[in-house]
Amino acid sequence: MSQKVEKLIDKKGLRLDGRKPDELRPIKIEVGVLANADGSAYIQQGKNKILAAVYGPRELHPKHLALPDRTVLRCRYHMAPFSVQERKSPAPSRREIELSKVIREALEPSLFLEYYPRTAIDVFIEVLQADGGTRCASITAASLALADAGIPMRDLVVACAAGKVDDTIVLDLMDTEDKKGNADVPVALMPNLNAITLLQMDGNLSLEEFEKAVNLAIDGCKKIYAMQKEALRAKYVNIKEVEE
């Protein structure tokens, strides 16, 4: 994108939606929203609306895919046809298949897969409305759904992106910033263990800029982590309050 049609950051240093460069979009998280799934979570991050559901561990079919020493984690990231401006074909696209794999690999290190051999855990992620940074919001929601299903894990996984827009490093890019900006760096993190489980970069950044973006994304992750934990606790704390 060489010629810029519009300014992505105004004179005051604010972004298109009025956020400061290091500000997250408003986030709302809910846990246990689906009755039929073993675990589920719903996240709204800005205009993103994403549902995650977890089934398992359960018997794996077809059986020849089962592993004798650990659980098979299966992940499906899917965008609803109405999630974007132009209707998206409901068939899994190249991008969705890739994101399914990327999300699976971001979640895998957090789970004790060796505990339940010969079984499968299925994670379904449904993007109802997309506005940039869906892979990050999906990871955040999927990890919560896994915790809600009672699957033992090392830590919750949180994800957040940072990037470069109009030569400024910004946090949590939305769709227009992602498409018209210079770079996008999604990061997934297990905050208590301080371990990164996903790190991608799309675009061009200098080494210093990259470092700055990663650190900014990690700070964003930690802020979302607090909300994630709060959402998980809220399900049980509420009952306590009603009773007393």
Partner: peptide
Amino acid sequence: QLVTPGDLLAEGDYIAGEN
């Protein structure tokens, strides 16, 4: 007290029990 996955529960000479 209510804890969530990843919470640091204890440090030092303790034995990890259930969950």
